[in-house]
């Protein structure tokens, strides 16, 4: 091989997002051609404003597509996702460096723990 090996995924969240999408597809929540059609539309929309480099911006478009698709098939709601995102942000900001980051009840007071 004449080139150095490239990492399969450039960032951990790319890998998580990829796996999440593949898992949901394999569990039958949507068909792959539907996914590809939506993703193509997102890429086309993003690409009109700038040239996408196939890295972070590619997976940003992927994430936007998945968020919209999950809303469309009623698996998640945008407000709940935003609330959870904020809760994770809070958890990171209040966790001392080196400690595991966990969602605290104070960070997400609206959540109830089911038995």
């Amino acid at each position: 091989m004449n080139s150095a090996p490239e990492p399969v995924f450039e960032a951990p969240w790319h890998a998580q997002l990829f796996a999440l999408t593949v898992h949901l597809n394999e569990a039958g929540h949507f068909h792959w051609p539907d996914w590809a059609e939506r993703f193509s539309a997102t890429l086309a929309r993003h690409g009109t404003s700038k040239d996408l480099n196939g890295g972070d911006d590619y997976f940003t478009a992927w994430l936007e597509t998945l968020e919209e698709l999950l809303t469309h098939i009623a698996l998640t709601e945008p407000a709940a996702v935003e609330q959870m995102r904020a809760a994770w942000e809070q958890a990171y900001l209040t966790t001392e460096h080196g400690k595991p980051v966990m969602l605290g009840s104070a960070a997400a007071p609206e959540r109830t723990v089911k038995p």
């Binding site: 997002l17 949901l24 698996l75 709940a80 996702v81 935003e82 959870m84 990171y92 966790t95």
Partner: peptide, 20 residues
């Protein structure tokens, strides 16, 4: 010093994962 805050998309992915 708190744990390094991941980029916004990483947090959004975590949010989807947690909810699902």
């Amino acid at each position: 010093p708190h744990t390094l805050l991941p980029p916004d998309p990483a947090l959004r992915v975590k949010a989807l994962e947690t909810i699902l």
